[in-house]
Structures are given as structure tokens and as C-alpha cells.
């Protein structure tokens, strides 16, 4: 935890990323908000980053599990060696 009130952009970017996965603390989020009041670039980036999170959530995208992929690979490999 940083007690310094000022973030640099790199730290702001990191907190912003963590916030997308609900891993940023309240304090970090507060510092990020303060930073974005002064830094237009980070403000823009924060907005885009949040949009990406929203889009992925909204899409309800599904992936095959590692197990399922393994079995697909196994199938394919068997066929390739024949």
C-alpha cells in the first residue's frame, strides 16, 4: 500500500488492471481516481480498460476446459499418426 498521495502513470495503469479483476483495494482505487483527475491519458486508458472488461463480461464467452482440449488434441494426434 502506498501512502504517497501521488501515483505515477505506471502505478495507475497497474491498479487499473487490478481493478478490472476486483483485486484493487479501496485505497488504491481512490488514488487511481485522484490520479485520473489530473492525467487525461490515464483517464482515457481507464475508461477503455473498463469497456474491455464490460464487453468480455457481456459477451458471456465460453472456453473449452483444458481437459476437453486435451481430449481433442488426443483425437487429432491419433488420426495424424495413422
Amino acid at each position: 500500500m502506498k501512502l504517497n498521495m501521488m501515483f505515477n502513470c505506471e502505478e495507475a495503469g497497474h491498479v487499473c488492471d487490478k481493478a478490472q479483476y476486483n483485486e484493487a483495494s479501496l485505497w488504491e482505487k481512490l488514488l487511481l481516481t485522484i490520479h485520473t483527475l489530473f492525467c487525461r491519458l490515464c483517464k482515457k486508458h481507464t475508461k477503455r480498460n473498463a469497456k474491455l472488461t464490460k464487453a468480455i463480461k457481456k459477451s458471456e464467452i465460453q472456453t473449452l476446459s483444458t481437459e476437453q482440449k486435451r481430449s481433442l488434441k488426443e483425437h487429432l494426434r491419433q488420426e495424424m499418426t495413422q
Partner: peptide
């Protein structure tokens, strides 16, 4: 194929 496309094909 599996790594690159299986999720795409699945969706």
C-alpha cells in the same frame, strides 16, 4: 488447431 481455434469453433 486445438489451441488456436477450438474456442472459436466452440462459440
Amino acid at each position: 488447431w486445438v489451441d488456436r481455434y477450438s474456442d472459436y469453433l466452440y462459440n
